[in-house]
Amino acid sequence: MYEFVRGPLVWIAFLGFFGGLAYRFVAMARLARKDKVVYRTYDAKYGARSILHWVVPFAGVNMRMRPLYTLLSYAFHVCVLVTPVFLLAHVVLWRESWGVSWWSLPEGVADIMTLAVIFACLFFMIRRLVRPEVRNVSYLSDFLLALLVMAPFITGFAAHHQWLPYRMTLVVHIVSGALWLLLIPWTRLVHMMWFPFTRAYMGSEFGAVRHARDW
């Protein structure tokens, strides 16, 4: 079992993840030709201006209106992207498998970042339950997606600290991680790929067409 999840499943997960994103991207790029305004509206300057204002914390009005949410959201997104790539245990695996090696996070920092992801996901789920305007548009799938994102982090943390039988925890960890990667292109998690495009499009409409700011 461990051999399978450590070997073929990881390959399936990465191929599925990158292949899925590539497929969605190409399909959307073709569909965008049907949408008369899309390509000719994109403007490099105003697109970049908009992205910049929405990746820098507190650069937009809405972010300043809700400081706690902004902080947690930024912490979550940085940690969820950085931790899996630069975790020491993962860096070791990259080296063993492909002979490539890069910088890794100090273990204590990685622990804190993992807890940040878990805590932020819990916060997002609780927010879905207690804020009426969010509860109103929350579906079961929204909670399942949050759990899906949390799962590799919880199991990875448990495996690292060896709270549960190590091998079994590791298998669950890898399976949940693979599932997460495989589902990104086919769920709302695909927003990780569309963000720069939707943002740049709105930035271009506001900046180049409407001569106004969009943050």
Binding site: M28, L31, A32, K34, D35, V38, N62, M65, R66, Y69, R131, E133, V134, N136, V137, S138, Y139, D142, R188, V190, H191, W194, F195, F197, T198, Y201
Partner: peptide, 22 residues
């Protein structure tokens, strides 16, 4: 009658409700 924008907007919205106060 609709194409990429509709598709992307439907796929991307994560139901966060941050638009409410606007």
């Amino acid at each position: 009658e609709s194409a990429a924008r509709l598709e992307v907007y439907l796929q991307t919205c994560v139901h966060c409700g941050l638009c409410a106060d606007s």
